[in-house]
Design a protein around this nucleic acid. Structure first.
Lengths: 231, 231
DNA sequence: ATTCGGCTTAATCTTTCGTTAATCCTTTTT
DNA sequence: AAAAAGGATTAACGAAAGATTAAGCCGAAT
């Protein structure tokens, strides 16, 4: 069973939003319905999505403005527009903002679904790195497949989470891994409690890694962590 | 200059085919116009394409059949349909064959072009990752993503504000950044206290940057600051 | 049912960073 | 030249974030 794709639906109209959300859920998507831009940004902070569907005409922040803000913060996330405004200028504007599609209302739900699938199938199913690689971290050797960390004769058995976290950091060696990305990726949700949990795991990894000074987990205040290797 | 993308246009109607072909050429695409399925298959044999545009209603072999055959032989080539038949069943069939888009006639040429670009930019995995851009400031290297400034072996970790500010200045290298713009952009509000705060940050950045005389933050009295690089 | 391993929650202590304040210096205006 | 306004520099403060340790909880294994 494949993991269902996560869709952020931003639609201010109650009835359409509800209907569309339920329909997409029925079709096997994990749908989060946000009623306006602020709510959408909050959802993006908390969860990770594969696609965003934006209504163009909304009060406060319209779909175009929202798309622009989203693109700033989450440039990888593909999005498409729904709009009653089928003026050519709007369509062009939508695409110029980087949309992958622009659908004119009234929406045909079936067509929407096949278009969504067309989009999602074109997204590279993440170049997952080979499972059985090992990482050299200073004088440590980390083997994610077997969840173990060796330092000379010394062997530490890691728990699943410890191993996943260290792997995530090691994959992004020397570059910042944001709380948000770590948590949405590994925990599934970015909230206060999970962030506390993350701190505990960081402490544990630090203890395991304290035999070699050249390898260190640094914190970037308010942002996240960096696994850094010196020399 | 980027290499122009190669498009295979399959359209039996003389006038539309010619018009569309010329329009796309004008827009910088390398277009090959085939008037029916056989010609299209021959062209595919001969040349490599980035995208195929298929008319649905054609004598002999219709667009759907052609798409099916193409997919057999060139499964990587993305294709989209043009069609006067806007029946839902046709649209669904088009996508089920693996189309990346389905446009209903009459075609708006401008819209077609932006849709083509949207498709091509999604498909070309853009080898160059424009992600971790860094700035060269004299002998310093500034990495905003990791909030750090390096000078040879020496590394300075920047706080979020410091990094944002230096980035703003570096983006506008050698030109005046007004208080007003910096403050509204980064602080959100331009008032007396925030301006004081800005001064403190300017002092801090100056200290970090004082190892290379050729890089300097100048003040323009009553106006703002300039990050200036000499020589 | 009891134990145990592993993740989460809680409690407490430490560090960080943006702000504010105080003081001195520089430029512009009167 | 004096006054006024703008800017530079340094230090200190307090809220928020992070680190660390311990306790709690829950499902799996015994």
């Amino acid at each position: 069973m494949e993991k269902s794709k996560r869709i952020l639906l931003v639609e201010d109209e109650e009835s359409l939003g509800y209907l569309l959300g339920e329909y997409l859920k029925m079709k096997g998507f994990a749908v989060q319905w946000a009623k306006h831009g602020m709510e959408a940004m909050a959802a993006l902070e908390r969860l990770q999505f594969d696609l965003a569907i934006l209504d163009v005409t909304m009060p406060e922040m319209d779909g175009f403005s929202l798309a622009a803000r989203m693109k700033e913060v989450y440039p990888e996330l593909p999005f498409l527009f729904l709009s009653a405004r089928s003026l050519k200028i709007d369509v062009l504007k939508g695409f110029s903002l980087g949309a992958v599609d622009y659908l004119k209302k009234p929406i045909d739900e079936e067509e929407l679904v096949v278009r969504i699938n067309a989009i999602l199938s074109r997204i590279q199913p993440d170049r997952s790195k080979p499972k059985n690689i090992t990482y050299q971290l200073g004088d440590y050797r980390f083997d994610p497949a077997n969840q173990q960390l060796t330092f000379g004769e010394n062997r530490t058995r890691l728990t699943t989470r410890e191993s996943e976290l260290l792997r995530y950091l090691a994959d992004n060696m020397n570059s910042l891994c944001s709380h948000r990305d770590i948590l949405t990726q590994l925990w599934g949700e970015n909230d206060y409690f999970n962030r506390k949990s993350l701190n505990v795991f960081i402490t544990r990894l630090r203890r395991y890694l304290n035999m070699d000074e050249r390898i260190r987990i640094e914190n970037v205040h308010g942002k996240g962590f960096i696994l850094r290797a010196f020399q």
